[in-house]
Simulated assay, not measured.
Amino acid sequence: MASNSDLVKLAQKLTADGPHKMQSTPRRVRGLLNGKYAFDTINAYHVWEHPYYPQFYVPVSSFTPDAKITKASPVDGTNGATHLGRLSVGDKSTERVLMFSSGSLKDLVKVEFKEMDQWFEEDVPIYQHPKDPYKRIDILNSTRPVKVALDGVTLAESPNPLFLLETSLRTRYYLPPTSVKWEYLSKSDSETYCPYKGRANYYNVTINGKEHKDLVWYYRYPTAESAPVAGHLCFYNEKVNIWVDGVMEQI
Rank of each mutant, 00 (worst) to 15 (best):
P54S: 04
P54I: 05
P54N: 08
Q55I: 07
F56S: 03
Y57C: 00
P59T: 08
S61V: 12
S61A: 15
S62E: 01
S62P: 06
F63N: 01
F63W: 04
F63R: 00
F63M: 07
F63D: 02
T64Q: 11
T64F: 12
T64V: 09
D66P: 05
D66H: 15
A67C: 08
K68L: 11
T70N: 01
K71P: 02
K71Y: 10
A72T: 13
S73L: 11
V75E: 00
V75N: 00
D76W: 04
N79I: 04
N79Y: 10
G80C: 12
G80R: 13
T82G: 03
H83P: 02
H83T: 01
L84K: 08
R86V: 05
R86E: 00
R86Q: 02
L87H: 00
V89K: 00
G90S: 13
G90P: 07
D91W: 08
D91E: 14
D91Q: 14
D91I: 07
S93W: 12
S93L: 09
T94V: 06
E95D: 15
E95M: 11
V97R: 00
L98M: 11
L98V: 06
L98W: 00
M99Q: 14
F100P: 01
F100G: 03
S101L: 09
G103K: 04
S104C: 02
S104H: 03
S104T: 06
L105Q: 02
K106D: 13
L108G: 06
L108M: 15
V109T: 14
V111C: 13
E112Q: 07
E112A: 13
K114V: 12
K114C: 06
E115F: 09
E115P: 05
E115D: 15
E115N: 12
E115V: 07
D117R: 04
Q118E: 11
W119G: 00
W119E: 02
F120A: 06
E121H: 15
E122F: 13
E122N: 15
D123E: 15
D123V: 05
I126T: 09
I126L: 07
Y127G: 00
Q128F: 12
H129L: 07
H129W: 08
H129P: 06
P130R: 02
P130F: 02
K131W: 00
K131F: 00
D132E: 11
P133M: 13
P133N: 08
Y134F: 15
R136C: 05
R136I: 03
R136F: 03
R136W: 06
I137C: 06
D138Q: 15
I139A: 08
L140Y: 10
L140N: 15
L140I: 09
L140C: 07
T143K: 14
R144E: 01
P145M: 05
V146R: 03
K147L: 09
V148K: 01
A149C: 10
L150A: 01
L150K: 05
L150I: 03
D151V: 06
V153K: 14
V153T: 09
T154G: 00
T154A: 02
L155R: 00
L155E: 05
L155F: 03
A156F: 14
A156V: 10
E157H: 07
N160S: 14
N160T: 08
P161N: 01
P161R: 01
L162E: 01
F163L: 11
L165G: 04
E166M: 11
E166V: 09
T167K: 13
T167G: 08
T167R: 12
T167H: 13
S168L: 08
L169N: 10
L169W: 07
R170K: 14
R172K: 13
Y173S: 03
